[in-house]
Design a binder for these strands. Structure first.
Lengths: 196, 196, 196, 196
DNA sequence: TCTTAACCGAGACGGTACGTCGCGTCTTTTG
DNA sequence: CAAAAGACGCGACGTACCGTCTCGGTTAAGA
């Protein structure tokens, strides 16, 4: 197998970094469709040729840049499901309001609708974002706050769905009271005897 | 004064219809960013000049075409909140799975993020989509199934949020059981004494 | 055969006048290629349909408007060929410097190069412009200042050619001295025994 | 620094040549206003983008193409002013009749009337065209055939003005006799004592 | 140390799309 | 029935971005 191994040229790294930085900047500001390879090239000082040398297509670069959007919060451990959920959901609400990925996410969702590679990336991104909720639900299950036959995926959908809905669909404010009501609902549901 | 009444050239209607039809077609297939005026012109047989005569900008045409996406279901009246919700949510779930607006909606959300006119259109579209839920909640309130101090907007977010989440964010199947669980949760929450 | 005859509607005259006025205005300012039917229509308040009813083509309108450019000076009669020529040429020089047709004339010449109708119009225009020179040369011939075998067309070419040359080709100033030198040359040539 | 020397892509020359060739062709046939970038692009096989990469504007391309119109004759040296002039003027007369620039020149004059860059180009073109006359007049001055106080610019105007006049203004034939008469006139004038 | 291969920037190139303008034809309604 | 209003198809304008390409120059590795 001869050479290979660790021949990552410093120049390569520098170019890639510059391109990703600039792509990320444009992405945050204008969404996926607002990223232009020509502009990235001009602004980053890395030539288009080089960009296409490192990423096979615009999509590939975008995927790479999007992956850096995730800033996953730590899973809290307040001792109760209600406490944990409140904390997590408030953190999420705050990010939905301020984080730059919040304005970009719909463009990813949209692209994912038609591009399978982006779909995979979005799935990964989503999984990372939702991981803390998984942790919190598992803790709660161990504490017996969630009936063992309840699916946590349903609880997750019921927890974050309403927040996403308000951020992107109804464009309503997400206040503390709303978050607490959601948390309360989840706690009730989690412990309730199954309807059926 | 002047103008008035019935001087609508037949050609205008024909052109507008042809353009909207073709725009809608492209929109359904490729999303907002996949609509090209040149292609619409070529395919519809209506010249670009004429298109821009009827719509001041690409956005305006898109908005017009998007507005035709809505196929709002009738509000059911089964006699109970649970029944109504189940019906509505199942209808929604089915549309999310099959209707062509389902693949396009994220692109509208995305465009709305940066274009205020599209934002307005999206708000109108959203309002129309959600109207049946409003009706159902009002009926339930009259029946006393919802405590009078409960905000129906919160109930709405909790109802449809989880479905939207599964369709566009987690990309999970939305089965009957899930929908029923949601409905059950809403019914419980609606009648529950406020947490505070 | 009924009505017809002399039913020149007042409106027709008003429309034609308004169109010609506006066309002339644009013509003077921007030359032939700077006249736009759409703009004439908008500015004159006469609809395009009406314009095309009265003139079969853009060219026709242009020709009509160009014909109004001519402001032919009276033929002087100072009693001598030199005096008459000086007067005429100075008048011409002054018009070349200031009259608005001076900036437009090349566009007519150019159009004439490719459009036979415009060529005819230009010929007429030219003939009108040059008429006073014909008169002056005839007077001189009667006075015996021009040998009878001399062609006045050659004298004309030698008289005005140099002025045109300076106005449009070399773009030099045309001063009194130059004009007088030309006049002197013509006088000499007119009376000289033929070279042959 | 950097860049330097000889990194001329072969494609550049090929594109430029093809574009200029086609532009020149259209120019000769239809005059300045008859040149369309889209058509040049289609016919030459060079994309519009590339054309605008090499010339900042339609005007610039036109100027470039026009500059290739000049086919300046050598200055003759027959030993006498009359001989030289006859030769030059006959050559000019022949070109006015047949050369393709003859049909295009008015459109340049016209454009120059309103576009300063084209004005500069026209001045250069004119200077090149007239250069042989300058040479001939200088020779004659050295031979004493032109009085030293005579301005050669006036002689030039009187020489070529009448020919231009006949070609573009009166559209008369320019025959040998006419040319000889002009030459004779110039010779006389050049040697004559100043009028003043 | 010196090649030599990989890397790089600059930018040419052909496409496709944008939104605007002018032309000359056509249709409809008003005075 | 002329006029006004303006829809319509056509084709040109100049710009932006895409992804591919050619061209020389630079840099880092290994022989």
């Amino acid at each position: 197998m001869a050479k290979t191994f660790k021949n990552m040229d410093k120049r390569v790294e520098r170019s890639k970094a510059a391109v990703l930085r600039e792509t990320y900047r444009q992405l945050s500001k204008n969404g996926i469709s607002g990223v232009s390879i020509d502009v990235v090239s001009r602004t980053s000082g890395v030539s288009k040729t080089t960009i296409y040398r490192h990423w096979p297509s615009r999509s590939a670069l975008l995927i790479d840049a999007c992956s850096r959007l995730a800033s996953v919060p730590m899973a809290p451990d307040t001792g109760s499901l209600r406490g944990d959920l409140c904390k997590l959901l408030k953190e999420l609400a705050s990010q939905l309001e301020t984080a730059n990925w919040s304005a970009v996410y719909p463009s990813i969702i949209d692209a994912a609708e038609r591009d399978s590679e982006i779909r995979i990336m979005q799935a990964a991104l989503h999984k990372a974002f939702m991981a803390p909720f998984g942790t919190v639900f598992n803790l709660a299950k161990n504490r017996g706050e969630i009936r063992s036959n309840k699916a946590t995926t349903a609880l997750l959908a019921t927890s974050v769905g309403p927040l996403f809905y308000r951020r992107w669909f109804s464009r309503e404010k997400i206040d503390g009271q709303f978050v607490e009501a959601i948390a309360e609902t989840i706690v009730q549901t989690a412990y309730a005897r199954s309807t059926k």
